[in-house]
Design a protein around this nucleic acid. Structure first.
Lengths: 366, 366
DNA sequence: ACCAGTTGTTAAACTGTTTTACTAAGGCTA
DNA sequence: TAGCCTTAGTAAAACAGTTTAACAACTGGT
């Protein structure tokens, strides 16, 4: 009977299956061997077709590619990584700031990074380096367990000692928009010096001399670049004791407002304020408006960043444009080159430019 | 002598190594076999130690663990993934909005997702579903090439047809803070109906009847939930033709301002505006302030989201708090359960609550 | 006709882990 | 004391690719 022979067949199959593939695999999950069998070539050939190896002839390539398409075969990334050298994943490390993932500055950098990485067939993993995270050595695991090929470090400064972990181990890593103490790490950042010169040129040419500065995070090298230019340009104008003309605005609008209050209180005759970023400039403008001090008629304001989508700011903000998106794309390029061993040490600077808008005007005697 | 026998042993090892591994491997890269050899156990035992398998005795576990620590061994994730079932990575898909990565709403969701995923030993990959990305089928590759275990979809609505690709293939995926056409996908979202009821209760109890609404994205199910409650509650008050009381604010402050202008023009007697999110509420308030219309004396405003860090908003905004952070953590939990096969279909709602601040007050005859 | 060189393809080794089936030893019951 | 569970550990197969040495089939030169 059919059922009998079926049983026998089943038993035979069961034995053979036991020998060949103990657990039956779902037939829809096809691998490189299936493709090779179907195309009548070896797995090596299929692998070479996938990777566009020129050793394969056009004819074979086409034939195999057709089988791949027909079967809907997709190479397993974990297998490729295990066998090959790279993960095609890069980590984006952020500091433990509460709203880092909702920030215009990081958002612009991340857009550039994500777009470029995607275009180059890389994925990005985003991690926030919270204290416990660092204590557990998760940032080291990331590379050592072969999750990633390398790191992009955003928003860190000299205080973040965990970066030395990456430096001493020689992991491929690039600091984005900053430098790290003693150049232990490769870096690429906007030309904050140039930006500061552009801003100071603008204010000085408009006749301003009593220029205050709202800075933030002096533990960051690029922030110090700006401070240094500001200090020098002021000294050139005979203003030697600038310390009383500077206040920390903590990178936030509220901090900017508080700093503006402090500065305006100490120097009622100030005619311009240079701000370390747009958010602090926004806060300063808000404070001045409340006090009935007109921007730009009484006080001129310049920011840094040129963040998009500042809603309803009046007057519009004159600012130093930082090419953050381009910085993100360039950082990805440099990191991948570094991973591939094609790059020596990376130290690169991207030019800024001033965007003249409504918050600056010629100085007026007050 | 000891040194002699050591030399002999070395030679034997050298020969065996030559046979086993033709190319010399860098000695710093140690694997499970090295650990097994050093500890005098099989690789299986080491594997079981790593994974805390109870089959291993306390004594052996301790001995092997010590070797692991001494050698600084870290299991290779790609190898674990290849051999095992899971990648321990989840994809966060975002729509192709220009500043999605700099948005307070997404930022809060992402924080919850990132924190919870990290705590559970998972990594997150963030991808924006741009047209070309979808056309290339990258969103499908992500799962089929075993980059990830599953998807969290943020900010999508019924218009995003690419989600059906995930649904038809039965990939583990959860829509976060929305539903998808015909419930093809699992979802978890804030209780927008409840939020709308809370907001309407508030306004009605304050005596408001001429309540306008600034909505956005009616192609989104949760947005429709709010509209539906608004329409019903208005109808209960005898207000049947509400269409003229509604305007699309596009989720942006500018859109909110424009919508407020349109509504205030059509209904100079309106006494309150319900806004689909805080950003549009902000825009509406800005427009009203410019027109000399006082909030809340002349017009009450209620928003949705309770986004943090709205700088210098006066009066402070009464709003429906959405538990976005918690939603993010819950979404991760549900997705991982689903990946592990521990969950059936996921349809979950998280309660909202009203935060009463300064932008609402009792109605006043105008 | 023979040898060298080029081209295209293959077999086999290798990547680093998990898992399953098996074994040996020890303890318990009948 | 034989028989049967447990317990703790091992050997080997599987996972799904890449890489390389070797080889076969041509081509061209002498």
């Amino acid at each position: 009977m059919d059922s009998d022979s079926a049983v026998v067949a089943d038993n035979i199959n069961a034995i053979e299956d036991r020998e060949a593939t103990p657990r039956a695999k779902p037939p829809d999950k096809i691998n490189i061997r299936d493709v090779a069998g179907e195309a009548g070539v070896s797995v090596a050939t299929v692998s070479m077709v996938i990777n566009n190896n020129p050793r394969i002839s056009r004819a074979t390539h086409g034939r195999v590619q057709r089988v791949i398409d027909r079967l809907g075969y997709r190479p397993s990334r974990p297998a490729q990584t295990l066998s090959g050298k790279y993960t095609q994943v890069i980590a984006v490390l952020l500091p433990a700031l509460r709203h880092a993932l909702a920030d215009a500055y990081f958002g612009e950098l991340l857009s550039g990074i994500a777009d470029r990485a995607g275009k180059l067939g890389h994925k990005i993993i985003i991690e926030q380096a919270k204290p416990q995270y660092v204590k557990d050595g998760k940032h080291i695991e990331l590379y050592e367990r072969k999750f990633i090929d390398g790191y992009l470090c955003l928003g860190f400064n000299d205080k973040h000692k965990m970066l030395t972990d990456l430096a001493t181990r020689q992991f491929p890593a690039i600091m984005v928009d900053n430098r790290f103490a003693g150049n232990q790490l490769d870096w690429i950042h906007c030309d904050y010096r140039l930006g500061a010169e552009q801003a100071m040129n603008c204010l000085l040419q408009l006749g301003h001399r009593k220029i205050a500065m709202i800075f933030a995070a002096p533990e960051s090298a690029t922030a110090r670049d700006v401070l240094e230019v500001y200090t020098r340009r002021m000294a050139e104008q005979g203003m030697d004791r600038v310390d009383a003309w500077m206040a920390d605005g903590m990178f936030t609008p509220e901090g900017g407002a508080a700093a503006a209050e402090k500065l305006a209180g100490a120097h009622p005759d100030l005619s311009a304020i240079l701000c370390g970023n747009d958010k602090m400039a926004l806060g300063a403008m808000h404070y001045l408006a409340q006090k009935g001090i007109s921007v730009p008629n009484d006080v001129s304001i310049i920011g840094f960043d040129d963040i998009q989508h500042l809603p309803f700011i009046h007057p519009s903000l004159t600012t130093v444009h930082l090419p953050l998106y381009e910085l993100g794309t360039a950082a990805v390029d440099r990191l991948i080159e570094k991973v591939r061993g094609k790059a020596g040490s990376v130290t690169e600077v991207l030019p800024t430019h001033l965007i003249l808008r409504g918050s600056t005007s010629i100085v007026r005697n007050r």
